[in-house]
Design a protein around this nucleic acid. Structure first.
Length: 427
RNA sequence: GCCCCGGUAGUGUAGUGGCCUAUCAUACAGGCCUGUCGAGCCUGUGACUCGGGUUCAAAUCCCGGCCGGGGCGCCA
């Protein structure tokens, strides 16, 4: 049906009869001429309607945001400030838009988050909102193609599960016929089971669910997790894979999305390797700033801001104390108080958590119990460690948070088409 | 889970007890206008989150509900 896009008009010769489809963003009727600003996913064009032509009489019937088809041609000389112009010979209204609009598109009026998300389909007609998802798509595509080039297989694992992955985060409970089940908070256990299956490098892009009642600009209750797991690898290998994946994702975004530089915070792919700082070094820096971190304690937001201010962009915090890491995290050979783990940070925002994993089944069982969990609930998982499990490492990367920091969005909800937060389950 | 803040036309706002018959912008309707482009000018339509209370009088004060924004904790 649709032959080409508005942006394809560039370079077309006058006189060639063409058909455009799109939304009538604005209509201006003067005494002797009329104009429609037509929008499609590629941009805007001014449709010029001369008084002596047949479509002039119907201009008044076209409401803003109506869907129209226009036949015509580009003029000899473009006079519109938009930079694209099209002289209409014939206009058809394909679907009239109601009025008033729930959100104005051409209006220069601020709209609250709540109104925006209640009317997300309208909100996304604004290019500054829809382009976030073109960016997100391109970032993900770059990461995906990089992982594919490194011998990874993309997998899909269950989101309805019977047991908690890590015991920490709260899970959403669902009815599963006569049983209780949960929405998975992470594909962690399944990724590791696939390592035991002999698929040496796996990744998954899928939803993760957290039933935490937080209300912040960086939390979603359903988010997209990019998760990898690789056999015969340690935490350093996993960090290499991560920084290169992110760099490729950003490179693909900057190269493939029109006008990416205009709205991206990052103007070029970040240089690898990313800087690394250990947890103990962070504690020392904070001590110099008069902030005390108790032994084995996580760093809070205030503390992460201070650490983050020392770096331009992405950086790793490595060797976290064992107390703040899940049971499947392996510890350093020469100091069991610290782990072969890392977080990827951008300023104070945590983007990734990763580690080398425990691969010895007895150690793993002991660590599950040390965390106060019932190891019998993890038998399906532990079993896969008893018949030939390689050493392995991996990470989970939050796609919405990554998009948020690359585009410098004030709120992570903007990087989710239909965000799920503490109070929103609609639309 | 704890704490703070907010809810006024379709949208975004002004308003802190009587001068509110509620401000402004934008949208919408009608009119004017030699090509406009955040068009301009004129006229008009349109709103106090819900329930209870205080008061001679409530958009305004109090209590509760509903809805939202944020901080902490926790996390990706």
């Amino acid at each position: 049906m649709k032959k080409f896009f508005v942006a394809d008009l560039d370079g077309k010769l006058p006189g060639e009869m063409l058909t455009l489809n799109g939304w009538a963003q604005d209509i201006r009727i003067l005494k002797n001429v009329g104009f429609i600003v037509l929008r499609d996913q590629t941009g805007l064009v001014q449709i010029t309607v001369k008084k002596d032509t047949e479509p002039f009489s119907m201009l008044g019937d076209i409401s803003r945001e109506s869907v129209i088809m226009v036949k015509g041609a580009v003029p000899e000389k473009i006079q519109s400030k938009i930079g694209r112009e099209f002289i209409a010979n014939e206009i058809s209204i394909l679907n009239i838009a109601g009025s008033p609009l729930p959100i104005g598109i051409a209006d220069e009026v601020e709209v609250d988050f709540d109104t925006r998300f209640n009317n997300r389909f309208m909100d996304l007609r604004k290019p500054e909102h829809s382009r976030i998802f073109r960016a997100k798509s391109a970032i993900l595509w770059g990461i995906r193609s990089f992982l594919m080039s490194q011998g990874f297989t993309e997998v899909q694992t269950p989101k309805i599960v019977s047991a908690a992955t890590e015991g920490g985060a709260d899970l959403f409970r669902v009815k599963y016929f006569e049983k209780d089940a949960f929405l998975n908070q992470s594909p962690q256990l399944y990724k590791e089971m696939l390592i035991a299956s002999g698929v040496e490098r796996v990744f998954e892009v899928g939803p993760a669910f957290r039933a935490e009642e937080h209300n912040t600009p960086r939390h979603l209750n359903e988010f997209t997790s990019i998760d990898i797991e690789m056999a015969f690898a340690d935490h350093n290998d996993a960090m290499h894979m991560l920084e290169n994946a992110i760099s490729h994702g950003i490179e693909n975004f900057l190269n493939k999305v029109p006008e990416a530089l205009q709205f991206s915070l990052l103007k070029s792919p970040p240089k690898t390797p990313f800087p690394r700082i250990t947890y103990e070094e962070c504690v020392s820096i904070l001590a110099e700033n008069g902030l005390k971190v108790n032994k084995g304690e996580d760093l809070n937001n205030e503390q992460l801001k201070i650490i983050g201010s020392r770096f331009e962009g992405f950086y790793f915090i490595t060797h976290w104390p064992r107390e703040v890491r899940p049971f499947y995290t392996s510890v350093l050979e020469d100091n069991e108080n610290f782990t072969k783990s890392f977080d990827l940070q951008f300023r104070e925002i945590e983007l990734t958590s990763g580690a080398q994993r425990v691969h010895n089944p007895e150690t793993l069982k002991r660590k599950i119990e040390e965390k106060g969990l019932d190891s019998s609930n993890f038998e399906f998982y532990l079993k896969t460690f008893r018949y030939g499990m390689p050493p392995h490492a991996g990470w989970g990367l939050g796609l919405e948070r990554l998009t948020q920091v690359i585009l410098n969005l004030p709120n992570v909800r903007e990087a989710s088409l239909f965000p799920r937060d503490r109070t929103r389950v609609f639309p």
